[in-house]
Design a protein around this nucleic acid. Structure first.
Lengths: 337, 337
DNA sequence: TTGTACGCGTTATCAC
DNA sequence: GTGATAACGCGTACAA
C-alpha cells in the first residue's frame, strides 16, 4: 500500500497502452472494444488508480479552484458568505479555498500568491485592505479573473453588490420616523466604499428631511469589530445621541456591552441599529434592529459570476445588485422626552 | 497582461538559462555571481513570476497542504480553531484548506476525496459525523496522516485533547457550590466522545458529592446549535431546574433567547453555564459563565502535531492535553429560595 | 482499434 | 559560473 499507481502501470497490467487507458477513463473511449474498456476499468479498481492531479492539471490547466479572501472568518457575516460560496462551488465542481486575511495586506498578498501558484482559476476578494498594488501586480498581471466585494460601484470588474445607499436611507428613515433628532454613527476610520455609501445614503436622507426635522449627526471612528463597538460606548454617551447607527452588526453587539456596562438601557435610553443581518441578531438581547443583506446569496452569486467569467473571459462586465431591507426588532424605539 | 509568466520566459528576459533561474529562486544559487542573482530577482518582480505549483509538485511530490474539516464555520469556536491552524501552517509554509462539513457525512466524504486527489499531505478532522468507513477507505488506504479532534482518548491516532472530564467536574463543582440541587443538562443526541466525557465528569462529581448534597439531574436532547438551545427553553422550564449546563456556548446563547422569551431572567430565575469560551461570551448579557478551552491553541497544536507526523511518519502516537478552566461571569448565581 | 511521441513547467544532475 | 537535458505523470495529435 506504499505507493500510488500510475497510468503507465495500469496500462501495463491491463496489457494496453497509456493512451487506451487515458481515453477510456476520460470518457472518450467509445472507439475501443467493450472488452478492453472493461479490462481497463477492472484494473483501475484493482490497483486503486487515481489520476495524479498535478500532472493532469499541468496539461489541462484548469484546476477548478477558486481562492477566497475574507478579512475575518470570526465575523458570522463571512461564515455565511463562505457557506454560499461552498454551496455553489460544489455545484459546479469547483473547490473553494478560503483564507482569513486579518486585515493584514502582507498576509493577503501571501495567500494570494500561494493560491495563484497553485493554479487558482479565479479569486473572490472580500477583503477591504487589499491594495490595488497587489491587485494589479498579482492578479491582473497573471490574468486571473477576480471579483471584488465591498468595493466601489465604479470599479470595472465583475460585481455583486447591495444597495448601500438605500440601506443607509432606510436607517435614516427608520430613526427619523421614530423621532430621533440626535444620532451618532459608529464606523471605522478607513472605511471600504460600501460602508461609505451606507453613510452617504444615511446622511443624504437626513439632509433631505432636514426642512421638517432638524437633526444632529455625530460620527465616531472605531475599528470594525465587537471590541471597536464596545470601546465606542463612552463616546456615544458623550455625544448625547438618542440613537446609534452601528455600521455593522458586530460593532452593534460590542456597543450593547459597552452601553450596558455604563448603565444605559437599550432601547430605553438609547436606540441601536446595526447593519448586515447576521443570525446572531435575533439572539442578542434586545434583538437587534438591522439592515439585512442576503449574505449567503451574495456568496452564491459571487461564485456563479466568477465561474462564468472563468469560462467566458471576454464577456462584458457583470454586475448584480441584491436587495436590502430593514428588519425591525427590539433595539430601536422612540426617544425619551 | 495576458498570461502567467513561466520560468522559461523569465530566463529569456534575464538572458540566462532556466537552470540558473530555478537554482537562484530556490536558494541554491550561491555559485552564481551576485550580479546574475540580482538580475534574476529583478526580473522575477518585474514579470511577477510565481512558480507553477503543479509542475513543481510533480517533481518534488510534497504539496505542503493540509486539509481541514470542521462541522460548522459559523460557530466561533471553529473560526478560532481555524485561525490557529492558519497561523502555524504559515509558519511551516503549509497551506490549510478548510471546509465545513455541515454534519453531512456525504459532504465530508466528498471534500476528503477532493483534498486527497489534490495531494493533501495530511488532514485535521474536527467533524463529528465522519464515518470510520470514510476514515479507513479514504485516509488509511492512501496512507494519509490525519488527526482527529473531539474523539475518544482511546483512539490510536495522534490527538490534541482537553480534559473534558475535568471540565464537567468544574461545572458540577461550581453549580453545587452555588447551592443548586436541580440541574438540567442540554446536549445533542448523538454526542461526540468529548461531550460524553464532559457529561460523565459532571455526573461523576454530582454522585461524589451526593452524600452531602442530594441533587437531581435532568437531561434534554437538542441539536448542538443556537437554535437547538433556543428550542430547549420550554423543556428546561418544565424541568424546574435552577441551573442549566449547556454543553457548549452556542447552545447557551440560544437558551438565553428562549428563556428570556418565556419571561425568565438569567441568572435570577435560572443560572446558565456554557462550555468552550468563545469571545462572544463576554458580549452577551449577562456575560456567560463557561469552561474555557484554549481554542486557537488547539488549532495550532493540531497543526504542529500533524506536520510533525507528515515529516516523521513512523514516530509514536502523539498526545497532548491542554488545560481547561472555569471562567465565572454573570450568568450563574445562587438559586432563589 | 490501438499505440508512439511530444509537450505541459519545473527541478536535479552533470557536463562544460 | 553557467547551461543542456532528463525526468515527474498525464493527455492528445497523429500514425499505424
Amino acid at each position: 500500500m506504499a505507493h500510488k499507481a500510475t497510468i503507465k502501470e495500469l496500462a501495463e497490467a491491463a496489457g494496453v497502452s497509456v493512451t487506451t487507458v487515458s481515453q477510456i477513463l476520460n470518457g472518450k473511449g467509445d472507439r475501443f472494444s467493450s472488452d478492453t474498456r472493461k479490462k481497463v476499468r477492472d484494473y483501475q479498481k484493482k490497483l486503486n488508480y487515481v489520476p495524479n492531479f498535478n500532472a493532469r492539471n499541468l496539461i489541462l490547466n484548469n484546476a477548478k479552484t477558486i481562492g477566497v479572501l475574507v478579512p475575518n472568518i470570526g465575523n458570522p457575516f463571512f461564515s455565511s458568505f463562505i457557506a454560499g460560496i461552498q454551496r455553489v462551488s460544489r455545484e459546479f465542481e469547483y473547490l473553494p479555498f478560503n483564507f482569513s486575511g486579518s486585515n493584514d495586506p502582507e498576509l493577503e498578498n501571501y495567500y494570494m500568491k500561494r493560491l495563484i501558484s497553485r493554479g487558482a482559476d479565479g479569486m473572490i476578494i472580500a477583503s477591504s485592505t487589499i491594495t490595488s498594488e497587489t491587485l494589479n501586480d498579482t492578479l491582473k498581471k497573471n490574468a486571473i479573473p477576480y471579483l471584488l466585494m465591498d468595493q466601489s460601484p465604479l470599479s470595472d470588474g465583475d460585481q455583486v453588490r447591495t444597495n448601500d445607499t438605500l440601506g443607509g436611507k432606510l436607517v435614516a428613515d427608520h430613526l427619523l420616523e421614530l423621532g430621533h433628532r440626535n444620532i451618532t454613527i459608529v464606523m471605522p476610520e478607513n472605511a471600504t466604499d460600501n460602508i461609505l455609501y451606507r453613510v452617504k445614503g444615511f446622511k443624504a436622507e437626513i439632509v433631505a428631511q432636514d426642512a421638517q426635522k432638524v437633526c444632529h449627526v455625530t460620527t465616531i471612528y472605531r475599528p470594525l469589530t465587537k471590541k471597536g463597538g464596545f470601546e465606542s460606548a463612552q463616546a456615544v454617551v458623550d455625544s448625547q445621541a438618542t440613537a446609534v447607527f452601528a455600521i455593522n452588526d458586530e460593532m452593534a453587539i460590542g456597543l450593547y456591552r459597552g452601553l450596558t456596562q455604563l448603565g444605559y438601557q437599550i432601547p430605553t435610553d438609547v436606540s441601536v441599529i446595526g447593519y448586515d443581518g447576521i443570525d446572531l441578531d435575533e439572539y442578542v438581547s434586545p434583538a437587534l434592529t438591522t439592515i439585512q443583506q442576503p449574505i449567503s446569496r451574495m456568496g452564491e452569486l459571487a461564485t456563479e459570476l466568477l465561474i462564468n467569467r472563468i469560462n467566458n473571459p471576454r464577456i462584458e462586465q457583470q454586475v448584480v445588485e441584491l436587495p436590502v431591507r430593514l428588519i425591525q426588532r427590539s433595539s430601536t424605539t422612540a426617544p425619551k422626552i
